[in-house]
């Protein structure tokens, strides 16, 4: 199979970027999207063109590294998948495919299709944890958690930190990402004593880092590869309000 790939090239954070279109040949029918890029890179290197930089690691949809905007959609045209779980069978042979990095002020481009998402780590460092020291925990079964609460908590905890929600939001808000963490913990009895502090600190950090406000457009939920829903944003809002009242 052959495709035309229109791809964003940018030498580094300071350089000005532009689109280039390349022709890629010999793509197997069962190839994944990233395998197609591997094949293209192989062909580019042999032609003396610098390969395209993009983030990836697990290629199983779980590490959250891959982060491509494909044909105008975060993680491409398939639903509920990360870019690495997107397959070429979703594209017509011969098609021109447009590939861009995440576009968001809080995620500056490092090179080509690679962006800097350390802002997510900073939000997590602001409060996305339970303060427990190794060795001080009580027996696991002394904390009973109803089956359905654990499942709901897991729904939110499935977030892979990819940033598709931010990239897809017209306001560049990180609410879904923050909500996933806050909500996952809020659904469990552990960490209750610091719940208010957590919600306040994470939201404050998100604002400080230049993410936009959430206006409930639901675009994030539509593009989230892990199906984190905006119900969790509602729970974050409740946690946040509770925290404000307790101030």
């Amino acid at each position: 199979m052959e495709y035309n790939v229109k791809v964003w090239r940018q030498k580094n954070a300071k350089a000005k970027g532009h689109f280039e279109t390349y022709h890629v040949t010999d793509v197997e029918e069962d190839a994944s999207f990233l395998e197609m890029l591997d094949i293209l890179n192989d062909q580019l290197i042999r032609k003396g063109v610098e390969p395209i930089a993009f983030d990836h690691d697990c290629r199983e949809g779980i590490c959250g590294a891959c982060s491509l905007y494909v044909d105008g959609r975060a993680h491409g045209p398939d639903d509920q998948v990360t870019t690495c779980q997107l397959f070429m069978r979703h594209f017509k042979p011969g098609a021109t495919i447009t590939v861009e990095p995440w576009r968001s002020g809080a995620f500056p481009v490092i090179k080509d299709l690679m962006v800097d998402r350390t802002a997510f780590d900073k939000i997590m460092q602001a409060g996305g944890f339970i303060t427990v020291r190794a060795g001080s925990a009580q027996d696991g079964n002394s904390i009973l958690i109803p089956h359905d609460d654990a499942e709901l908590s897991m729904d939110a905890a499935a977030c892979v930190g990819c940033g598709a929600c931010v990239a897809t939001c017209k306001n560049g808000s990180a609410m879904l990402f923050v909500a996933a963490r806050v909500s996952s913990l809020a659904l469990l009895p552990q960490g209750k004593p610091e719940a208010a502090r957590r919600a306040r600190a994470m939201v404050a950090k998100m604002d400080e880092l230049g993410f936009g406000n959430c206006t409930n457009t639901r675009a994030c939920e539509m593009e989230c590869p892990k199906h984190v829903t905006i119900d969790h944003i509602a729970r974050l809002n409740r946690e946040y309000l509770k925290a404000k009242f307790s101030e």
Partner: peptide, 22 residues
């Protein structure tokens, strides 16, 4: 055994039975 206790305390949402036990 202590690993499981530590992870539960950190808020790892391990699968639970209907009675709430791990």
């Amino acid at each position: 055994a202590a690993i499981i206790d530590q992870c539960v305390a950190q808020g790892v949402p391990f699968a639970r039975e209907y009675g709430g036990y791990l």
